[in-house]
Design a protein around this nucleic acid. Structure first.
Length: 277
DNA sequence: AACGATCCCTGTTGGC
DNA sequence: TGCCAACAGGGATCGT
């Protein structure tokens, strides 16, 4: 599933293709993909003729500024993918959105499970959108240990659940939350408020390292869910995952079997020896 | 307020 | 082999 590293890699590709370009045509074929606008038509009307000023990212959201003050917000959900193609390229199944730019290139959004979306917001709608509720970005703006400690103070929820809460720090999903907890040698079920300053310090460093390594590796492409980069290539990061998806397999550090529990409805992978309660 | 459960959706997988 | 239930999960929403 796309998390911060995969969205960041997507952002870089889209920025290269889109910044300074004008949208010549836009078509949106799926009401669920445009669910944050009044209709698919509204997305098309708001986009055509606009120039793209910047392609940014906050957490797992892509934030694209247009020349008239509107903002395009995109989210990959769990199966979404943007591709940059020529207009005559084969249109893949589940292609819900196509924008044609003034250099002839097309930006396409392909999303089988439709958890993702493409929205065009004015300033008011943006301020009420999910983007406005995000905590600091885990890659660009990771809070210092002291600030994280105060966030966690008094929280009884397991640290795994708190890492998935995008209001705390934005960008971590199920894969990198598990990987960061393993790297920090922290049990995912520990209550957030029980973490010591040293533990939060380790967790902070681990979050940064896990995300940076994943970006260097081109992101994580799982076998079952074909996350692909916008150029169609697969990422390499799955080969270095320590715990995610490795239930029953030997821990890369100590050799004992990786365990799996469910936290807040999400599968959670950890080494019971390296990450004791 | 904090926390957990539920829902959305479809390709893949595992059990029978 | 074929069928179908179970599973995967980010974010919104709702109940406790």
């Amino acid at each position: 599933m796309p998390e911060l590293p995969e969205v960041e890699i997507t952002r870089r590709h889209l920025a290269e293709a889109m910044v300074g370009r004008k949208v010549q045509a836009a078509s949106l074929h799926h009401a669920r993909t445009s669910r944050y606008n009044a209709s698919p038509d509204e997305v098309e009307v708001l986009l055509v003729g606009r120039s793209i000023q910047s392609v940014g990212r906050l957490g797992k959201f892509l934030v694209i500024e247009l020349d008239d003050g509107h903002t395009v917000v995109g989210h990959l959900g769990m199966s979404g993918r943007f591709s940059v193609t020529s207009p005559d390229a084969n249109v893949e199944p589940h292609t819900h959105f196509i924008a044609t730019l003034d250099d002839g290139k097309q930006i396409r959004f392909i999303d089988p499970r439709t958890f993702g979306f493409v929205a065009v917001f004015d300033a008011e709608a943006l301020a009420e959108s999910g983007v406005a509720r995000l905590g600091r970005d885990a890659l660009l703006d990771l809070p210092e240990t002291a600030e994280l400690l105060s966030f966690l103070q008094g929280r009884s929820a397991p640290i795994k659940a708190l890492l998935l809460d995008q209001r705390l720090v934005s960008g971590l999903g199920n894969i990198y939350a598990d990987e960061a907890l393993f790297m920090a040698a922290l049990n995912p079920l520990l209550a957030g408020g029980d973490l010591t300053s040293d533990q939060v310090d380790r967790l902070r460093d681990s979050i940064a390292r896990v995300l940076e390594e994943a970006i260097e590796n081109g992101g994580t492409t799982l076998d079952d869910l074909a996350y692909l980069l916008p150029d169609g290539k697969a990422g390499d990061n799955m080969s270095v995952l320590a715990v995610y998806g490795r239930t029953g397999e030997p821990c890369r550090r100590c050799g004992s079997g990786i365990d799996r529990v469910v936290v807040r409805g999400r599968s959670t992978h950890f080494c019971p020896e390296c990450q004791p309660q």
